[in-house]
Each structure stands twice: as C-alpha cells, then as structure tokens.
Design a protein around this nucleic acid. Structure first.
Lengths: 219, 219
DNA sequence: ACACCTATCTATAAACG
DNA sequence: TCGTTTATAGATAGGTG
C-alpha cells in the first residue's frame, strides 16, 4: 500500500503489528460504514485485537445502541422496557469482554510478552507459576512417553506371540503336505504346492516381516 | 473513489447501487482478511445486501461456527429485522463465551492442569511455550533487578553528595560560632552551644546516620 | 500510544464490451 | 449482468515529533 509493498502475513514485530492494527482497523470500519451507507445494507463487524480488546460496528440501530451503551456506561434510565433487557445483556457483555481482556493479558504475560508493567515481586511470582507449570507438563509428557512405550511393547509382544503361533501352524501345514506328498504325489506337483503355501525359510515373506517386527513400522 | 469523487450517502440508482455493493463488498472482505492475517486478530464480518442476501467472513473457527448458525437460520426463514438483531447479539455473546472458554483452557494448561487430553506432540509444544515464556520473564526480572540496583546506587550517591555538602555547611557554621565565641564569650556558654549545634565527631548523630548510609534504610 | 507527513500502493467510479 | 480498463481518490508503511 505505501512506502513499500508488504506481504500479507503475520507481522512479527509487536509494535509494528499494533500500529498497523490500529490504522487498518480504522480503515476497515470506515469502509464498512461507507458500504452500509452507500448501498443501504445491514452489516456487522466484530474485531478482536491480539490483546483481546473488542471493537465492533453494526449498521442496525439496535446494535448501535448497544455499542454506544458499552462505550459510555449508563444514562439510559430514561428509556422504557427494552432498555432494562438491554442493560442486563449489556452488563453480561461488558463482563465477558473484561474477562477476555484479563485472560488475554495473563496469557500474553505467561508467554513472556507485555512484561514492562510488572515489578520484581510480580515477575518472581510469574516465574514461579511458569516453573510449576513447566514441571507439571514435563511430568505429564514423560508419563505419556512411558505409557506409549509400554503400550507399544505390549503390542509388540502380542504380535511376536501371534507370529510364533502362526509359524508353528505353517510348519505343521507344510509337514502335513510334505507327508501327503511323500505318500504318493509326483515331484512336479510337489514343487508347485510348496512354492505357493510354504516359501523357503531363508527368504522373508511379507507376512513374516510384518509379524516379526518388535514395533509396527508406522511409528 | 475514482473517476470522480462521490458523496457517502445512499446511491439512488438501483443498478449503480448494486454494482457498487458488489465491488465494495469484495474490497471490504479483502481488507478484513488482510487485517486478520497481518495482525493475527479474530474478526467476523456479516453483510446483508439490500436484497437480503447474506455474505460473511470469519477469521477463526469459533467464529465460523457462529457464521454457520447465522447462515442456517437465514436460509430457513427469510428473516425480518428483529431476528437479525437477535442473531447478531447472540453471535457476539456466543463468540465471547467461546473465546473465554478457550482462553481459560489454555491458561489452565499453561499452569499444568487439564493435560490428560494432550498427546506427546502437544505436550512438547506446550513445554516449549513455557520455556520460552520463562526465559523472557527471567530476562525481564534480571533487567529489572539491574535497573533497580543502579537507580538505588544513583540515589545513594546523590545522598552521599548531599551529606558532604551538609557536613561542610555544619563545619562552617561551627567554625563561625567558635570564632564568635573565641572573640568574647565565657567558657560555660561555649560548652552549651557546642553540644547542641556541633556534637563530637566520634559520636554519630541521627542526622549524620541517615545521610551517611549508602542505601536508604527503607529497603 | 497518538497525530501528522508523504511516497507509494490499492480500491474503485465511470466507461466500454 | 457480468468482466475489463483506466484515471483518480483513498489507504497506508515507514518515518518523525
């Protein structure tokens, strides 16, 4: 748009992002107002800043009232029945907004941003909170590692066991077949039957490969 | 905005209004997308054309849910004014509630609670986040320590300087008094005056104690 | 954080197909 | 009702105070 063209992706610098947010937000709201005016269309726009602050605009009259009520707290006692309802809703709305702002600030501070307003005591408290959280997360992670590993080992053991059983079944079958063949079949038929039902031991078949692995190969 | 400047008021010609609506709507949505991308902010935009058609955009999944709600109830019945307003109000409300729930969960997880639903990858991500945050906080704390210490050292130096000046003033005064006394006072008066205005050097007065400390004792 | 500046980029009014 | 063009108004990135 101006001195230089910029890429449309998240602006990394916090200050630059805030400046841009402020400018573009105003631009966007102006455009929204123009569209609703020029084309007589109803329109609502709700924007949260990265700090959790809420901005909104709505062309419809009732929402404008609500919006105004939010900006400058009360002076609407003079209105009749609907105003009471609006006030109730509005207070909930304001409470929610405040809660969001508070939680957003707390989250940002836990991520190490927006720390300039804190004194040493508050910073130490935050550090302690982070260390406690980190300890819990690392514990949970390690526990999960152990669980996943033992679960995989169990599965591996089961597979190996199955493998053994299958191997024995295959050996039994091939013995039976060999026995049957030895009792009366021709040598040409022997070759055919053996290659399809009992491949040579030195060469891994697809089946024995899958069953023989201690861990599944999709890990 | 171009071949000619236009007034921002309702366009009377229906066709011109529709053309402008279509162009400006697209422009507005593009700007909204850019803002949410550049500044990483959550954002919802809902536009009704004068023919009642609904267009909307929302940057986050939470908003998309609300958007869908609006879309569905819009297609169900043609909608008259009050229902539009109600929907928009509900949207804002729902949006706020969901946002709070999400942020609350994130906070609890950063504090090491409610981790049972996370897999190893998510836990590692969380651990990284906490370590980054912790690093920033520790840096900020150390910086603040250094600042506070140098500020105190500066204050201490200033106090020592003031102390020196005051000491010189006291010495000058006592010299003058001694001089005056030597010029005509009796020896009994000399003792009285000296003990009140100029105590012996080897014994710390309250004043010199306060001024002589490198750091204030309220630390 | 805010207002202002200005060079540059973008959006778009009007026109045409 | 569209898309395309084009000249121009508007928006804004980066800078300064």
């Amino acid at each position: 748009m101006t001195r230089r063209k910029i890429q449309i992706k998240k602006i990394e610098s916090t200050t630059a992002r805030q400046v841009t947010f402020s400018k573009r937000r105003r631009g966007l709201f102006k455009k929204a107002l123009e569209l609703s005016t020029l084309c007589d269309s109803e329109l609502a726009l709700i924007v949260f800043s990265s700090t959790g602050k809420l901005f909104d605009y709505a062309s419809s009259s009732v929402l404008q009232v609500i919006e105004r009520q939010n900006l400058q707290s009360n002076t609407l006692d003079k209105m009749d029945q609907p105003s009471l309802e609006l006030q109730l809703e509005n207070s909930t709305y304001t409470l929610l907004s405040n809660d969001i702002m508070e939680k957003t600030r707390e989250l940002r501070q836990m991520k190490g941003e927006e720390l300039q307003g804190l004194n040493i005591e508050e910073l130490q408290k935050l550090e302690q909170l982070l260390q406690d959280g980190l300890r819990c997360v690392v514990n949970a992670k390690d526990k999960r590692f152990v669980e996943d590993i033992s679960s995989l080992e169990r599965k591996g053991a089961e597979l190996m066991e199955d493998n053994q059983i299958l191997k024995r079944q295959v050996e039994n079958q091939s013995n039976n077949i060999t026995h049957v063949i030895e009792q009366g079949q021709s040598s040409e038929s022997l070759t055919n039957i053996c290659s399809s039902a009992d491949p040579p031991q030195g060469q891994d078949s697809d089946t024995s490969l899958k069953l023989g692995l201690p861990f599944p190969n999709w890990l």
